[in-house]
Simulated assay, not measured.
Amino acid sequence: MPDSSNPEQPGGKADFIVPYCDEAIAYLHTDDDLLIVSKPAGLLSVPGRHPDNKDCLISRINQDYPKASIVHRLDMATSGLMIIACHPDSHRALSRLFQDRKIYKEYQAVVYGKVASMEGFIDLPLACDWPNRPRQELNFNYGKRAQTHFEHCGVNQEGHSKLRLIPVTGRSHQLRVHTASIGHPILGCEFYAHPAAKAAADRLLLHASRLRFTHPTSNTELDISLPAPFWS
């Protein structure tokens, strides 16, 4: 059955009402072409299908920037940095950067248990698990290529590993499936974590922590970082 907890994903139930997110959006960069903002965990990137799920990142931003539009998304449960286009020309230029993989992204995550390797590379193809949407699955027959670098950044007080995740590709749920595939699911993940890992955190411990790219208009490099609130 589709999981109703994330109405941003295909197959999420339209009648699921997302709890209101009290945390405000943080603006880390603003100019005439684009914004870089921090999305709180628990806030939709775009409106949900239910009439009561209209509150979201872009609806809040449009109160101050009426012409702003979404270029990419984070799952509702994921916090962190997002790029917002201020006008159609900027949207097209930024979309090309994403398509050409010219935007460098880092995520911070806390995963279950102690990861033995100090770094690694996961190259496992992903496809939609159609009977169980929005879940994704490893699929070596017709899955799309998915690649993730990871770096071990220490162990927290509870004995779980802090990882820096650097996706090469941008598949749906890629970081969640890849970490689970090596036996270390992200804490608080309702889709791929076993019960102990799911119960170990009251939110998904996944945060988009860094964006680096060349500004499509000024040609200057933007390099914005924001550590996760659970990283210390």
Rank of each mutant, 00 (worst) to 15 (best):
A41N: 10
P40R: 12
H173C: 09
I58F: 09
P7M: 04
P88W: 07
R101A: 13
D52L: 14
D33Q: 14
A146C: 07
L34A: 04
Q136L: 08
K39Y: 01
L205C: 15
D15E: 13
E106D: 14
V110E: 06
A200G: 08
I182D: 10
K39P: 02
I70E: 01
L126I: 08
P227Y: 12
L43G: 08
L138K: 09
S232Y: 02
P216R: 11
K13W: 14
G154E: 04
A146T: 03
G113L: 03
D100V: 00
Q174S: 07
H178L: 12
L81R: 13
R145S: 13
A26M: 02
A127K: 09
L175K: 08
S181Y: 09
D31T: 02
A146R: 03
Q157M: 03
H173T: 07
A26L: 13
S232T: 03
L206Q: 11
N139Y: 00
R101L: 12
L211V: 11
S161M: 07
V168I: 15
K162V: 01
I186A: 09
A197R: 13
G12A: 10
H184A: 07
P19V: 04
Q63L: 12
L126M: 06
V168Y: 06
G159A: 04
H91G: 01
L204S: 08
L35C: 04
S209T: 11
F140G: 00
S5T: 06
F150P: 02
I25Q: 05
R212C: 11
H184I: 02
T148A: 09
P167G: 10
Y192W: 10
K54H: 11
N156V: 10
R176P: 15
P66H: 06
N219D: 13
L34F: 08
A26C: 00
Q99M: 14
